[in-house]
Each structure stands twice: as C-alpha cells, then as structure tokens.
C-alpha cells in the first residue's frame, strides 16, 4: 500500500493529516498489518487534551493489545465512532476511513519534526 505524501508519520507507526488547525490521526498500514485482524478500538472522549507522545488509546487485534501514541499535542474534537461497530476498517483503510480521532492542534510546530512518507518508508524498510 502507498503511504500518502500529505501525511506525517511517527516511529510508533501513527500518522497525522494536518488541515488548517485540525490534525486527523490514525495508524499506518504497516501497523495494521503487523497487528493483524483488529477487533477492538479504545479511544478518548471529545474534549480530552493530549500531549505529544502520550497514550491516545489502544487498538486490539485477535492476539494482542497495542497502545496508540499521540503524534501531536491537541484537544480531541472528533472520534471515529464507526470503528466501534466496524474495527476491521482499521485493517481495510488505515490511511482513510480507519482514522481514529481529530484534534485541534496545540503545537503546530511539532508536525514538521515528524517523518515524511519517504522517510517513514525507509524507516520500516518498505
């Protein structure tokens, strides 16, 4: 799967899409592939304030549970509720329909320090 150029990536395999002062956060195709069938997603409530690198919630596959870390600082403004009924969307569309939360960016400068698509692909050896 291609890694979109307009996303920025973390070493913990999350991505963020910045549009104005909103950041949409998800996990990468590499992450979903490593996890396998995802069966459960635990996400923070709207209004939760999260610091960069802090736990944003968790994703569980059949075999294991994994923490999701916030790629950027911000306040949660929307949660992808569709994942509750259809967690498999994280496997099917990790960079699109499987987004996790949207945040109002608290420190937009952080984004520049994340990896580009090319850097991330080099990082995972793709």
């Amino acid at each position: 799967m291609a890694y979109p150029e307009n996303l920025r990536y973390t070493k913990e395999h999350e991505w963020v899409l910045v549009e104005g002062d909103t950041g949409t956060i998800g996990i990468t195709d590499h992450a979903q592939s490593e996890l396998g069938d995802i069966v459960y997603v635990d996400l923070p409530a709207v209004g939760t304030k999260i610091g960069q690198g802090a736990s944003l919630g968790s994703v569980e596959s059949v075999k294991a549970v994994s923490d999701i870390f916030a790629p950027v600082t911000g306040e949660v403004t929307a949660v992808n509720d569709a994942l509750t009924a259809a967690p498999e969307m994280l496997n099917q569309e990790p960079h699109g329909g499987g987004w996790l939360v949207k945040v109002k960016l608290g420190a937009p400068d952080e984004v520049g320090k994340l990896m580009s698509a090319a850097e991330y692909q080099a990082y995972i050896g793709a």
Binding site: G36, D37, V39, S61, V62, K63
Partner: peptide, 20 residues
Amino acid sequence: ARMVDFGGWDMPVQYSGIIE
C-alpha cells in the same frame, strides 16, 4: 505467513488472517 518465535520455534502465526 507471518512468522513468530513460538517457544524457540520459528512458526507461522497466520497466513490470510486469524479470523478467516
């Protein structure tokens, strides 16, 4: 297959997906 270390053995944990 996705291979894992299972008690010292290099074993397949899944091919197409555990649920399938």
